[in-house]
Nucleic acid binder design. Structure first.
Lengths: 158, 158
DNA sequence: TATTGTTATACTCTATAACTATA
DNA sequence: TATAGTTATAGAGTATAACAATA
């Protein structure tokens, strides 16, 4: 399901193409994560917190994890000084999680370097093809989001 | 780096599009893996063994893991009856790893179901777009393979 | 009673270092 | 000496179940 046995070299079947592309992209992401001493789980955590300050419960839903898994993830990130916990103003059971300045800087740096890698990859195609591909991917993602619910932006990775 | 804050809904920037698409595809893979009680690591193991009978050392290289990690991975798969170890005929230090019939059946079933999911996803696009997308992805992967070494087929996922 | 979050526990996955047995 | 593989150990990541504090 991820290998490509005896296919024609220049013409992958569509399903294998999708699978292989996803592994290439994930490889780029993991490379930059590792370069910043981050695991993919931590990258997802920091990525979600870039434009949110959720409670632990909301966070676990955003990441698709159990509450207890989120506790451990946040514990380790907090120990590294990347995120912080603060009591909720409205519910004394709740905790609000947010990025520290250091966490924000780290995720921005990693995102920038991933962006450069991805841009290099796309640069392997001639400009016309590149634009076609981007447009088609946008349309596919939009159709997929629509077919699900309306879980459009921001949490496709969870 | 994985979130999509205030972009135009219908027009993701190309880099975010690639990242989000990779998460969607990985999500499909993980869903079918879980449906067969497999982790992604086990799926990669079984996938690599579909058309190979490597030694433990070769296997660790194919998967990009340390030898000891491969030992654990194969131990657990063997305990489940999915793979088997056999002594090498030529080097008494070596071990040859292969799929059992049960392992082969399992990876085939998972691959088939992932293929159906991926086909459904592509089916969200009109036929013309679908073919264009597949062609562009093929070209991108070919260019990427060429830009690396000649690590064409079979191990893009490692 | 229901919900939020943590703790206790267990398993998978991964790596490093040390070891055994071959070569 | 060098290589193939395993074992010992440690840490990240995940889940389930039980619990405390609050609602």
């Amino acid at each position: 399901m991820t290998s490509t046995p005896a296919d024609a070299p220049g013409r992958l079947n569509p399903v294998d193409g999708l699978a292989q592309l996803s592994f290439v992209i994930q490889g780029l992401l993991e490379r930059q994560a590792a370069a910043h001493d981050l695991t993919m789980a931590q990258v997802r955590l920091l990525g979600v917190l870039r434009d949110r300050t959720p409670t632990m419960f909301e966070l676990s839903r955003l990441l698709g994890l159990d509450k207890s898994s989120a506790t451990g993830l946040v514990d380790r990130a907090e120990r590294r000084g990347l995120v912080q916990r603060a009591p909720s103003a409205t519910d004394r059971r709740s905790v609000q999680v947010s990025l520290t300045l250091e966490g924000r800087a780290l995720v921005s740096a990693a995102a920038a370097r991933f962006g450069a890698d991805a841009t290099d990859l796309l640069g392997l195609l001639p400009p016309g093809d590149r634009e076609s591909l981007s447009g088609l991917i946008s349309r596919l993602l939009a159709a997929h989001a629509a077919s699900q619910g309306i879980e459009l932006l921001g949490t496709t990775e969870g």
